[in-house]
């Protein structure tokens, strides 16, 4: 079994989970806390990656982040390397898949916190930020941890968007999901089977863990 692609998958998934956890929880908090113009639109745009074909999503990202785009050029000017067809591209692809999961489940978890408790925190002298970090976040923590675990599992398995914007470069952007495709395609089933087993085991373990968290929350 090749360990390179698996190791790369873990590295990419860890980075994508970190980014989407921080950004996703912040957006979920914003969506849960207040009505503002464009709230529904933001929700739809953030959820779209769950239903769009990966090729369509990948195309948008290529246009937005490619070497000729404003963002792509700015990134290249600062870091000296492009976003697309690099490891960064793989992280972006995985993040785009993971973000909706965290925003959706995170928002649900935060909205399930009794608003009277937040009101109580405010009457006890806490500003909105302190009320969020000391009351909402701890009380929603099980739901948020479950969302982050699912996001990690999702990041680990991204295929289509990664292929579109990061390519399939062995040793650079070839994650396990891509390596499995290559191995099967090239008639090297034996190379694929180890990675298949590992990815399946992780997915099942994560889902089991998420269910357990849900049970204890009740």
């Amino acid at each position: 079994m090749e360990l390179g692609p698996l190791a790369l998958s873990f590295e990419v998934a860890a980075a994508a989970t970190l980014v989407s956890a921080v950004v996703g929880v912040a957006i979920a908090a914003l969506l849960a806390a207040r009505r503002f113009p464009g709230r529904d639109l933001l929700d739809v745009i953030l959820t779209a990656p769950m239903v769009l074909p990966p090729t369509v999503l990948g195309y948008y990202l290529l246009v937005a982040l490619g070497r000729r785009s404003v963002l792509g050029r700015a990134f290249e000017a600062i870091t000296g390397q492009s976003i697309v067809f690099t490891r960064t591209g793989a992280v972006v692809a995985a993040t785009v898949g993971a973000l909706p999961i965290i925003v959706k489940s995170g928002r649900a978890a935060l909205e399930a916190v009794d608003p009277t408790l937040l009101a109580a925190a405010r009457t006890l002298g806490a500003g909105p930020a302190r009320a969020f970090f000391t009351v909402a976040l701890p009380l929603a923590s099980r739901g948020l941890v479950a969302a982050i675990m699912l996001a990690f599992a999702r990041s680990l398995g991204d295929f289509g968007v990664t292929l579109m914007i990061a390519g399939d470069l062995p040793g650079q952007t070839q994650t396990a999901a891509l390596a499995i495709y290559d191995a099967i395609e090239g008639g090297r089933e034996a190379d694929a089977i180890g990675m298949v087993v590992v990815l399946s085991a992780i997915a099942l373990a994560v889902l089991y863990g998420v269910n357990k968290l849900g049970e204890r929350a009740r």
Binding site: D114, T116, L117, A120, A121, T123, L124, G125, G127, P138
Partner: peptide, 20 residues
């Protein structure tokens, strides 16, 4: 003036004790 700067004590019907 925001709630947190009014210096009130509020006892809610549900009491709203922080469960954690």
């Amino acid at each position: 003036r925001p709630v947190e700067r009014r210096g009130v004590a509020f006892v809610f019907q549900s009491l709203a004790l922080f469960p954690h």
